[in-house]
Design a protein around this nucleic acid. Structure first.
Lengths: 196, 196, 196, 196
DNA sequence: TATGAATGAGCCTTCATTCAT
DNA sequence: TATGAATGAAGGCTCATTCAT
C-alpha cells in the first residue's frame, strides 16, 4: 500500500466513528482534521469533497460491522450456534460492536429522505445480513438441524427487523433491557425449529 | 389564543416536518424562516434559540404521531381490531402518518449519543406506545378475547421493536415489502392467542 | 409629576448605572428593558431612540455625581474642610459614589472621538468641578483661611486632573492605593496655603 | 517570519487604532475586515475569536505606546531632560502619540468592571510607567542631579496620575490647555529638586 | 503528497427600531 | 401610555472548499 493509500485509509478509520456517532451533517471536516492530525489541504488531496469522505466512511463502517459479525459467526460449527452467536454479538446495543451503534440505523434515518446513494449502500447491507441469516438456516435445514418446512427467508427478515428495532430503542432508552428480551424471544423461536 | 401563541404554534407546525425529514443538525433556522414566511427576528421572539425550537418540534411530532395512532385505534371495538388497526396504520412506512416517518427513529439516532434531553422525550414515547399495546391486550384478556396466559407485556415490546425496525428498514429500501411481512407475521402471532 | 414623566424618570434611574458600568455601545436596549421591567414599545414611547436615552442617562449620572459632591461639601463650614471633604469623598474609587465610578471618565473615553455631544456635556461637568474647587479656595482666601497669592485657578485644574487620573488608575489596579497617596499629597499641598 | 505571522501582525497593526478609538464593544470584526482587506474566514484563521484579537490589540497598543515613550526618553542624557522629554511627548493629547490617545485610559474605563484580563495588562503598563519614572529620578539622585531626600517613588505615582487625568480631560475638552498647565506644573515641581 | 492561508457563503443570534392593538 | 409581535440589518463565528507553495 502506497503512502497515499495509507493516509487515506487512516483518515477513513479515524473519521468513521465520528460520523457514526454525530451524524453526517453534524460532523465537520474540521472534526476529521483534528482527529487525524492532518491539514485541510491533505484531507482534500485524498477526498474530493465531504460527500466523498462520507461515502468512504459509510462503506468502512458497514464493512467493519459486517466483518465483526462474520468473525463471530464463522468459527461456530452448527447453524443454531451461528444464529445464537449473531444474537449475542448484537445483544448489547449500549456497548455496540462499533462506536455509535449500528451504522445502518445511524446513517439510515439521515439518508432515507435526502441521500439516496447512501441509502442504496445501506440497503445492500440489510440484504446482506438477511441473506446471511437465511443462508445459515438453509444450511441448517440441509444438515437436518432444522425442520425443513421452516419459512426461513421470512424469519430472516423478521429477525433482522426485530433486532434493529430493539437496537435503536435500547440505545434511546439507555439500557439493554429490550434487547435482552428480544434475544430471549428469538432464541426461543429458533429452538422451536430445531430437530432433536 | 393570543397572536403570539398562534404564531408560535404555526412555527412549530411548519417546522416539525422539516426537522423530521432533514434532521436537527441539517435543518437551519433559515429553512424555518422560509417555510413560515417570518423574519429571523420574529423566530427568536418565540424561541430563545434553536434548541428550544427543536424541543418544541420534537414534542409536536411525538404528540402528533401519538394522536394519529390514538385516532385510528380509538373507534375500534375489540382488542384484536385495535391491534390490527395499529399494525395497518403503520404498515406503509413510505407513506407514513407524518412526513418523514417515525420521529422516534428520526430523532433517536441523532439524539442517542448527543442530545440526552431529546432522548428522554423519545423514550417516554416508546414506553407510551408499548404500554398502550399492552393495555389493549390486557383489556382483551379481561374481555375473554385472548387467552389468559399470554405474556402480553413482552409481546408489546417485541411487537413495537419489530415494527420500528421494519419501519426504518423499509424506508431505507424504498419499499414497504418488509413491513408487509412484519404486519402479516404480527397478525398471525396475535391470532394464535384469540379464543374462538 | 405625570405618570409618563415618572416612568421616564424610572427608566433613566435604572439605566444610568448600567451604561456607566458597561459603556454606551455594550449596553443594549434589552438590558434596560430587563432592568426596568418595561416592554420595548414603552421604552420607545419615552425615548425616541437609544441616543436620546444615552443623553438622558449621561445627564442623570453627571447630575447625580455632582449632587453627591455638593451634599458632601455643603455642610462643611471652612474652605479647608470643604476641600478635604471633596478629597475624602472621591478617595475610594473602588467603592465609588455612583456605581461604575466617575461618569466623566467612563463616558469620556468612549465619547472623545465619536460622540461630540456627549463630550460637550462632560466638559461642562469638568468645568463645573474645577470652578467649584476654585470658588471654594477663592472664598477661603477672602475669609483669610488661605494666603492671597495662591494661584487657586491653576490649583483647581491640577487637583481635579490628579484625582481623575488617580481614580481610573486605581480602578484598573483594583485597589485604592494610588488614590490614598494622591489624597495625602493634595491635602499637604492645601495645608501649605493655610494661614495659621 | 512566515506568511501567517505576517498577516497576523498586519491585522493587529491595522486593528489597533480602531479598537483604541472606538472601543472594544463598538468595534466590529467587520470593521477589521474592511481595514485589513481580509475575509471573515481569514481573520478567524488567525484569531480564535474577537476576544483573542482584542487581547493582541491591547498588547500591541500598550507595547507601541511604551515604545514611543522609550524612544523619546532614551536619547536624553540627563534625568531632568528625560523627565521633560516624557512630559513633552505626552503634552498634546489632541495629537497623541498613538491614534485615539492613551490606551490605558481607553481600554481601562471599558475593562475595569467587565474585562479583568485586560485590566491586568493595563495595570502592568501603569506600573511600568511609574517604575520608569521612578528609575529615572533615582538615577538622577545617584548622579547628583536631584537632591537625595526627594520621595521619588511617590512623585512618580503622582506625576503619572496627573498626566493621565490631564490627558483624558484635555481630550474631552477638545484642547490641550489643561495638559499645558500640568506640564508646566510638573516641570516646576521637578526643578525644585534639581541641585544647581 | 502535504501544508496552511485565504475565501465567502451560510449559520445562529442580537440589535435597534416600528407599529398595530 | 403600554404592549409585544414583527422586522431586517448586523454581529460573531463556522463551514466546506481552493490554491500557491
Amino acid at each position: 500500500m502506497s503512502k497515499g493509500d495509507a493516509t487515506r485509509q487512516m483518515i477513513v478509520e479515524k473519521a468513521a466513528p465520528i460520523f457514526n456517532i454525530k451524524g453526517m451533517a453534524a460532523t465537520a471536516m474540521s472534526d476529521i482534521m483534528e482527529v487525524t492530525g492532518l491539514s485541510k489541504g491533505s484531507m482534500y488531496n485524498h477526498f474530493q469533497d465531504k460527500e466523498m469522505l462520507v461515502s468512504a466512511v459509510v462503506d468502512y463502517n458497514l464493512h467493519s460491522y459486517a466483518g465483526k459479525i462474520r468473525a463471530a459467526i464463522g468459527p461456530e460449527k452448527t447453524a443454531v450456534k451461528k444464529l445464537f452467536a449473531f444474537i449475542d454479538l448484537l445483544g448489547t446495543p449500549l456497548s455496540p460492536i462499533i462506536e455509535g451503534g449500528c451504522p445502518v440505523l445511524n446513517f439510515g434515518t439521515e439518508a432515507d429522505d435526502t441521500h439516496p446513494s447512501v441509502a442504496t449502500k445501506l440497503n445492500a447491507m440489510i440484504e446482506l445480513c438477511e441473506n446471511a441469516l437465511a443462508g445459515i438456516i438453509k444450511e441448517g435445514i440441509q444438515q437436518k438441524e432444522f425442520d425443513a418446512d421452516w419459512n426461513y427467508k421470512e424469519f430472516a427478515v423478521i429477525m433482522f427487523s426485530m433486532m434493529e428495532g430493539g437496537h435503536i430503542l435500547s440505545r434511546i432508552a439507555g439500557n439493554n433491557n429490550r434487547m435482552k428480551l428480544i434475544s430471549k424471544t428469538l432464541k426461543a423461536m429458533i429452538k422451536q425449529h430445531v430437530i432433536q
